[in-house]
Amino acid sequence: MFGDFQGMMGKLKEAQQKIEETKKRLDTVYVEGTSNQGNIKVTITANRTIKSISIDDSLLQDKEELEDYLIIALNDALKKANSINDSEMAAAAKDGMPNIPGLDMFK
């Protein structure tokens, strides 16, 4: 029995290591979000860290319009990053999970 338990614990540690490696790798995956007209571009990592924001000069005259477009671009980038992050983390967790009866949520 203890051999099985130790094997499961080893698998769990491997899963945790894969998840940590995936998190580090996702820091190097860049996603770009844009506003509807492309006058704002936001670059973030798949771990949802903002790396850059580019704003067209034409928006600098209208604060409210700038804010609206910025929200659109940020939400676009976050949606893409969330999708990548969720699928990559689920794959990492699934690969490393031991086969525990009743805990097949990642299968």
Rank of each mutant, 00 (worst) to 15 (best):
S58M: 05
E14L: 14
I53M: 09
I50S: 09
V31Y: 08
D57V: 12
G96M: 08
G10A: 13
I50D: 04
A15W: 10
M97Y: 14
A46T: 04
Q37T: 09
G7A: 15
D62V: 05
A93E: 15
A81L: 02
N75G: 01
D76K: 03
F5I: 15
I50E: 06
Y30E: 06
Y30L: 07
I72M: 06
I53Y: 05
K63C: 07
Q16V: 10
E88H: 03
D86Y: 05
M1W: 12
I40F: 02
K23Y: 12
G33I: 01
S54E: 13
I55T: 07
L78C: 01
A90G: 00
K23I: 11
K23N: 12
A90M: 08
N99F: 13
A46P: 04
N39T: 11
Q16G: 10
T49L: 08
I53A: 08
K41Y: 06
Q61W: 02
F106W: 13
D95V: 13
M9L: 13
E32A: 04
I40L: 03
F2V: 09
L60Q: 10
I19M: 12
D56E: 10
G96E: 12
A81K: 09
I55W: 03
I72L: 03
K11W: 10
A77Y: 04
I55V: 15
R25P: 01
E64P: 00
L78A: 01
I55C: 02
I71Y: 01
I50R: 14
K13D: 02
N36I: 08
T22Y: 09
K63I: 12
A15F: 11
K79G: 03
D27H: 04
P98V: 09
F2N: 05
M1K: 14
I50W: 14
V31D: 04
E32F: 01
D104N: 15
M8H: 09
G7D: 15
G96D: 11
I19R: 11
S58T: 10
A15I: 11
K13F: 10
L12M: 15
T49F: 04
E20K: 06
L70V: 03
K13G: 10
S83P: 00
K51Q: 02
E21P: 11
I44C: 11
S52P: 05
D27C: 00
E67S: 07
D4I: 06
K18V: 02
G3C: 06
D56G: 02
S54A: 06
F5N: 13
K79I: 00
